[in-house]
Design a protein around this nucleic acid. Structure first.
Length: 497
RNA sequence: GGUCGGAUGGCCGAGUGGCUAGGCAGAGGUCUGCAAAACCUUCUACACCAGUUCGAAUCUGGUUCCGACCUCCA
């Protein structure tokens, strides 16, 4: 049995055994959002994926320091004015740029909380690390891999490529890049189109500006991640994550900066989550084809037939491996919703079961099967955090659990350690590792429960008298209120849909 | 054009050189006053063309189609 975690490392393009630099400590850095507007669902997917990775690494026994930044320095928009996104939004809203940042940082936190993502251990913000960014720029200048022109400092990609090598992560060759870069505004004073800004001189009207050895300006986009990962995790740490779309140029530039300043590439394992698509097209802020998490929850969007609970959406996302694209459709969400409630139902059933061990009834084959499935949950997570496979294993266990609950299989065929393992594994993987919560739970309330008891008692009496008209009337009327009544053998249960 | 990644049954989606993914939907059955739930059984697969192999959907080469990145994006 293999008990080591394997991860697909984008820098080697291979699945590798995960070996922390300083076990049991693990450092993980994930690129966070730019807080100039609402997070959309694609962002949520990435952070849910890394949330599960964070959760599993901890469950596995590692002491993880999870750092996820907030980018609150704006970067260039695609329009020809090359306007800073933070500033553009601030002007639009007629507020301070930092108010924009605060507003959408709050929104970001609320959304991730809704999706049951654990907060990172450190959430550094770019504007809180201007000094460090100036220092790293100086270090890169001192190493000879950057140059200053007119109050801006640029990374010298060509020189770096000759001496160290550029393009390892994305597999790009510098000659191809030179042939293909476009001319962008505000870049005319760079030596080479490929060069990227470490520090930009601020125009007189630019609101976000800081003093530096090169005059007033603001840091380049790629720099903050190099700086903050180095500051909180060291120059050489374990995992760096982010969306696939950050692979180039963002992460490539980060690696170059890291190497120029510290000689290390930064992280040893580079993990990228794939994109969310709508009708086969990437969901992105720029394309405007995304919906907001709130819209998906309420169903208030033209392409959505109805809303889905946050946990249903989280479950839906985890049914796919993080490295595959995930396409959104009402059909897929409906299927996921049914599956999710089945899982939750089995979970409830499991926690109602209690075993009185009986050595005479124990069945070695049955115990082996349960143990095998429990083991498989670990194995599938060890295999590059394969949540889809883990969920499949949990469904196999669900079938068992339901059979025990129904009496179709004797719970006594298990001995105590096997039953305890089943309970622990099932509870842990759903709750601790996958971070799912039971959405059904929050209904009822004392008064409702009491009223339902009365109603169902009356119905029970009717059924005992074979007064099917009355019993069916009660059930049908409750149904119109979305209350579903189920007559199981022992008792009648109800739930709100 | 360059770089990278895909193509799996009605749908969503894992995985693998020979052995059931899983979920949703469909069919049959058990249970039930009926219904629901649950359980059991079951039907649809691995883009195309070559090659390697005892054996390939899984490896190799080619073809077609699709997507991402190459400008900010998770």
């Amino acid at each position: 049995m293999e008990h080591l975690i394997k991860v697909y490392n984008n820098i080697s393009r291979k699945k590798e055994t995960f070996v922390p630099i300083n076990s049991p400590f693990v450092g993980m850095y994930v690129c966070g959002p730019t807080v100039y507007n609402d997070v959309h669902l694609g962002n949520v997917r990435t952070f849910v994926s890394f949330d599960v990775i964070y959760r599993y690494l901890q469950y596995y026994g590692y002491k993880v320091r999870y750092v996820r930044n907030i980018t609150d320095v704006g970067h260039l928009t695609e329009d020809e004015n090359a306007e800073d996104k933070m500033l553009k939004q601030a002007k639009l809203m007629q507020v301070e740029p930092m108010e924009v940042a605060q507003l959408y940082t709050n929104n970001f936190h609320e959304v991730l909380y809704l999706f049951n993502c654990l907060p990172p251990n450190i959430e550094p913000i770019a504007t809180g690390h201007i000094l460090e960014q100036i220092e790293m720029t100086q270090a890169i200048l001192a190493a000879g891999f950057a140059y200053e022109i007119d109050g801006s400092v640029y990374f010298d990609v060509e020189k770096f490529n000759k001496k160290v090598g550029y393009g390892k992560l994305s597999g790009r060759k510098i000659e191809d890049l030179i042939a293909n870069t476009r001319d962008l505004d505000g870049q005319e004073n760079k030596r080479n189109n490929l060069d990227f800004a470490l520090w930009k001189k601020a125009n007189p009207e630019h609101l976000m500006r800081w003093k530096s050895p090169w005059g007033e300006g603001f840091p380049g986009w790629h720099l903050e991640c190099s700086v903050m990962s180095t500051k909180y995790l060291g120059a050489n740490f374990d995992i760096h994550g982010g969306g696939m779309d950050l692979k180039f140029p963002h992460h490539e530039c980060e690696i170059a900066q890291n190497q120029a300043a510290t000689h290390y590439e930064g992280a040893r394992y580079w993990l990228h989550t794939n994109m969310l698509t709508v009708n086969g097209q990437k969901m992105s802020k720029s394309l405007g084809n995304g919906f907001l998490p709130a819209e998906l929850i309420t169903g208030d969007h033209p392409v959505l037939e109805r809303g889905y609970a946050p946990m249903v959406i989280r479950f839906f996302m985890l049914q796919t491996h993080y490295s595959s694209t995930l396409d959104f459709s009402n059909e897929a969400l409906d299927a996921a919703e049914k599956a999710y409630f089945r899982l939750m139902n089995a979970w409830e059933n499991l926690n109602k079961l209690s075993l009185t061990p009986n050595a005479n009834l124990q069945d070695a084959a049955e115990m082996e099967e349960v143990n095998r499935l429990c083991e498989a949950c670990h194995q599938s997570m060890n295999d590059d955090f394969n949540t889809a496979m883990t969920i499949a294993n949990l469904f196999e266990l669900s079938r068992k659990i339901n059979a025990y609950n129904d009496g179709k299989l004797a719970l006594e065929s298990l001995d105590e350690p096997t039953f305890a393992r089943l309970q622990a594994t099932y509870n842990d993987f759903i709750q601790v590792v996958l971070g799912l919560k039971n959405e059904q739970k929050e209904q009822g309330g004392k008064l409702t429960d009491g009223l339902m008891d009365i109603i169902l008692d009356i119905r029970k009496a009717a059924r005992e008298n074979k007064d099917w008209t009355t019993s069916d009337l009660i059930r049908d009327r409750l149904n119109t209120l979305n209350v579903v009544v189920k007559d199981a053998k022992e008792a009648t249960t109800w739930s709100v849909n």
